[in-house]
Simulated assay, not measured.
Amino acid sequence: MHRPLLILATGMFAIGTDSFVIAGILPDAAHTLDIPTSTAGWLLTAYALTYALLGPVTAALTTRWPRRTLFLTGYALFTTGNLLTAYVPHFTTALAARALAGLGGAMITPAAVAAAATLAPPERRGRAIATVMTGLSAATALGAPLGTALAGLTDDWRTTMLFVSALGLLAATGTALFLPTLPTPPTVPLRTRLTPLTDHRIGLTLLTTLLAYTGLYTVYSFIAPSLDRATGNSTTTLAALLFTWGLAATAGTLASGRLTDRYGSRRVINTALTLAALDFALLPWTTAHLPTTLAALLVWGACGWGLLAPQTHRLITTLPAAAPLLTGLASATVYIGVALAPVVGQAGLTWLGPHRLGPLGAALITLALIAAEAAHTAIRRTESATQ
């Protein structure tokens, strides 16, 4: 089981690097494209929104595709989109290129998470999901800061996009050579895929994810101006901070799988959300100095990424028969939050300034905690009624 999971995690590493590296090079991209930094935030939104909206659609259209064919097609679109982003001269065409890359991600991520859940027995499902999700968090630890550092060393943010393209090619090669044959899931119409949304337990769980990741990425979308007091506008220092944040994210992801298997999803979810909300509420003060910024990012990374595995586990254990559908909806919901975050962040920049985005994110994360408890109550109520 371990080798297929590692191959899937490698693909998630490429997808995750593309998702997170843009935030670190946003000011440089804005300067090159001759647009304000707040407007450049739409480069994140174009990728994330395309992924979120087309994820369920592509999953329905490609159900009968062999899994290897699905993954390789997704990587082809992903890599092409990033190559175009590196070379197009105008903002509007860059947005279209980012959307194409997002379409590739929409094909890959839900299938990878569903495959992980299928490969593992129930008692190890949390760890299997966490292993694949570690590819995403490792991207924050290695891919995103390395991409940011490359932009600083070459004084050209487009080098970063070429780096992401190379990661896509590497993941595609590994998939073609080493991924074993995986069972093809049964055909499921798009309407059926969206049916779980009518279940209030699922709806509340997805609402938790939406609120949490909108809050978390409201700050991350504008991470460079938010941390400029600590970094002194040094791209190298920012890359080092992102590396530390990513290490914490990787540790949080791995630990959350084991903690979920041992203690259940509720404790892990509530603890992660509570600590993240407190951490974000204090960001206006902690990000004023480098040592406290480092501490804040450690908590942020571990708690923010420690939420993914227990949330996915909660969905799958609530409706086990719909696991492949739910993993797709879960991934789409994360990216809807990531897509909304720059929009919320743009408003926050105007009203509050870059150093006050933390409390705005904390408010959304607190609402996520309320939604999580509502989801838990609904799940328990349904269980009691069926006994």
Rank of each mutant, 00 (worst) to 15 (best):
L6D: 03
G11I: 05
F20V: 09
V21F: 08
D34G: 10
W42Q: 14
A46I: 08
Y51V: 02
V57C: 03
P66V: 01
R68L: 01
R68W: 03
R68C: 08
T69Y: 00
T85D: 09
A96F: 09
A97I: 08
L100V: 05
T109G: 00
A116W: 13
P122Y: 05
R127I: 13
A130W: 02
T131M: 14
T134Q: 04
G135T: 06
L136W: 10
A139V: 05
T140F: 00
G152D: 14
L153R: 10
M161R: 05
F163Q: 02
A166I: 06
A172V: 02
T175A: 08
T175N: 01
L177W: 08
P183Y: 07
P183G: 10
V188F: 01
L197K: 08
G203K: 06
G203W: 15
T205Y: 06
A212P: 03
Y213Q: 04
Y220K: 07
R229F: 04
N233Q: 11
F243H: 14
G246M: 00
L247W: 05
T253K: 02
R262T: 15
T271L: 14
L307R: 07
L308E: 04
T312L: 10
I316V: 11
P324A: 08
L329A: 10
G345Y: 01
P354V: 05
G361N: 01
A363W: 00
I370E: 04
A378L: 05
I379M: 06
A385P: 06
